[in-house]
């Protein structure tokens, strides 16, 4: 992201945060950290900057380091910027028995990036992840909250193209 974004939750996100905080005893606000970081990541461009984490720390009345410790521990939090569409391909055993490695190299070739990289137009980031709990429906990847299963090269083409068009449409509007 190039333009400086003001770090503050939208009213809807704020409402969601207070709903989550209400799930825990009043003096245990820190428990809301993981779900609130998910919201923060969604709100502020798919990753957690130091400013975002500091903001979450203030919201939950904890030290910033407590947020950094957590954000760097869990693999779903991105502490570096990612593309608009983050592709997370499962690379664990059962998926590999059904061709996950081929899917990874197909996407690498198709998007002309390596695992861990982002396309020049900042549209796609490719990541490999460990078991996502879809072993019976392999190979698969996750984009956002959606699982795409029983992947084939044709299916990958279609999914990525559709998502790209959606994003472009959203930007143009």
């Amino acid at each position: 992201m190039t333009e400086v974004q003001k770090i503050e939750f939208s009213p809807e996100a704020m409402l969601e945060v207070s709903r989550i905080v209400s799930h825990y005893p009043q003096d245990k606000m820190k428990s809301a950290l993981l779900p609130v970081l998910h919201i923060a990541q969604n709100e502020f461009g798919g990753w957690l900057s130091a400013e975002t984490m500091d903001y979450v720390a203030r919201l939950l009345h904890i030290h910033p380091i407590e947020v950094y410790e957590v954000a760097t521990f869990y693999s779903m939090y991105n502490t570096k910027p990612v593309g608009k569409i983050l592709i997370e391909v499962c690379q664990t055993g059962p998926c590999c028995l059904n061709g996950a490695e081929k899917i990874v190299s197909y996407i690498e070739k198709k998007l002309n990036i390596k695992v861990g990289e982002t396309t020049k137009d900042n549209m796609f980031t490719l990541k490999t992840v460990e078991c996502l709990g879809a072993c019976g429906y392999a190979p698969m990847f996750q984009i956002g909250e959606t699982f795409y299963e029983h992947l084939t090269e044709e299916k990958v083409d279609m999914i990525l193209e559709n998502l790209k068009q959606e994003k472009l449409k959203a930007i143009n509007n």
Binding site: H23, S31, L34, P35, V70, Y74, S75, M76, C131
Partner: peptide, 12 residues
């Protein structure tokens, strides 16, 4: 009884 769902964030 109150019941809530709490998400993790990627850690086996």
């Amino acid at each position: 009884l109150d019941l809530h769902v709490h998400p993790g964030a990627g850690a086996y």
